[in-house]
Design a binder for these strands. Structure first.
Lengths: 263, 263
DNA sequence: ACGGGTATGTTCGATATCGCACAATAGGCG
DNA sequence: CGCCTATTGTGCGATATCGAACATACCCGT
């Protein structure tokens, strides 16, 4: 179905894509006819590695993971994309294929756009381009941090921020993931996740059962995180906030910016 | 000193920055007055983390590492930038600061440009922008792979591609690095590097002494690498090759493209 | 209520890496 | 030549993670 009106969502809300929201109305109207609202279901594979990309996605509620798979079969989540971003950044960067797999972590909506339309839109140094550049910067920073994180941090401190991040994304407050799946994302064994989860549960920080995880003590779990949680929040927090300065005169965009994330 | 003439280097040679070389002569001439040739010495810190960036660098012989430092003091090299790229990609992406440290691994020259000049140049959808976008894509892919690599691969298979990469960059064929420094780049202990190096030496693949490493058996060492070595070469190999297609109508650029990288 | 499949808990030996301490060696420099 | 320092070699106990096997518990559909 084609979206016929701009969703009038409060900024910082769980739905509504931040990048699209940061566009001026006039710009958004130009893109609008090229955008389709689609539903993404949990587990859906949006891109396979080395596959040609036909669409990019601006999540509105949905959350998508970029997953790397090694020859050995080992996997890691290298990045997560929610309302703050766009799935298919490679297209924007001038490449038609992605080396990663993109898989839906949290079901939800997304605005879909043909790659050709996106590339067309980027001809002129559009505000969309500025936004995407700035988003790429944040993504790059976060992925860089992940290199350090996966190298130096223990499983529990890595699990904690992962859970908090997913909860932040999730509309319901419940994280719907099996421990086996989480292990695949962290690039560790399932048993390692179980052990850490048990510890957190024993301390009353979380509770879970068969693929449904609740965070009981937010602040407590935050104390268990490695430094990377703060870093990630900081990076993505800045994406929209920073850009209006570039838009400058654009006015309206600045209004939206002030409200982003009470945090 | 200001560079007053375009260095007439064979493409694929060790000097001459690939991105600058891929520009049309007319475009290069526009940039030329803004470019300064500078010498970078080994160990030089070009940016500190969270520091405001004043210049970007197009290496011509020099090699620069992007290094992440954690609260614990642990470090990792998240990316390496040589003739194929630009140091300060964050500027291009719309941010004035970098979360990483940039440190010179191999002494050499680089063309330096003020950040303001770069940002100015990028106003119009210039070919330079296309090249930098494409380069960013490669960097992103390589860093993503690093996440998986540091998570799943053992020290020796990670050391091997690191050595080969450095040797590829180095003009002399000698790698000038202490094992302690290499350990900091891989994010492991020095002893772990020593152990792997001893093994390689015993097998006649390398020889070394006090911070000077020679690769004796290229093919043999390649066999010890994890899959990531091929991946990295593939990603950076495509940067220049892919872009002229985007330039499309620009003509002339295609001519240069044919010559890039005998590989 | 029952059965099957998925998710989670538990154990245990193997392994890679860590952290530390200290010995040995090679160059540079006076 | 001999000292000094950076670099490399080595040993060892501690620890985190791995890999695999198996037990238990829960949910869903019939």
């Amino acid at each position: 179905m084609k979206s016929t009106q701009r969703p009038p969502l409060p900024s910082g809300s769980l739905s509504g894509n931040d990048i699209l929201s940061a566009l001026l109305n006039s710009e958004y109207r130009r893109l609008e006819p090229k955008l389709d609202m689609v539903e993404l279901w949990r587990g859906q594979v949006i891109y396979k590695a080395d596959q040609r990309i036909r669409h990019v996605y601006f999540p509105q509620g949905a959350v998508v993971a970029m997953v790397d798979t090694l020859d050995s079969g080992g996997t890691v989540e290298v990045g997560v994309i929610g309302n703050e971003g766009m799935v298919g950044i490679n297209i924007f960067l001038g490449c038609m294929v992605t080396p990663d797999k993109a898989i839906v972590q949290i079901a939800g909506n997304a605005m879909r756009m043909k790659t050709s339309d996106l590339r067309n839109e980027l001809r002129f140094g559009s505000p969309l381009q500025r936004l995407l550049l700035r988003y790429t910067q944040a993504l790059l920073a976060v992925i860089s941090q992940s290199v350090a994180c996966s190298q130096h941090h223990l499983i529990a401190p890595r699990l904690a921020p992962w859970l908090l991040t997913m909860r932040d994304y999730s509309r319901s407050g419940t994280i719907e993931m099996s421990q086996a799946h989480i292990a695949a994302m962290l690039g560790t064994r399932r048993e390692g996740v179980t052990e850490a989860a048990l510890k957190f549960q024993a301390e009353g920080l979380i509770s879970y059962s068969r693929g449904k995880i609740f965070i009981l003590n937010d602040a407590g779990l935050k104390k268990k995180t490695c430094e990377c949680y703060r870093f990630i929040k900081k990076q993505f927090g800045g994406v929209i906030k920073d850009v209006p300065k570039v838009l400058g005169v654009a006015g309206q965009a600045v209004v939206r910016a002030g409200k982003v994330k009470a945090h």
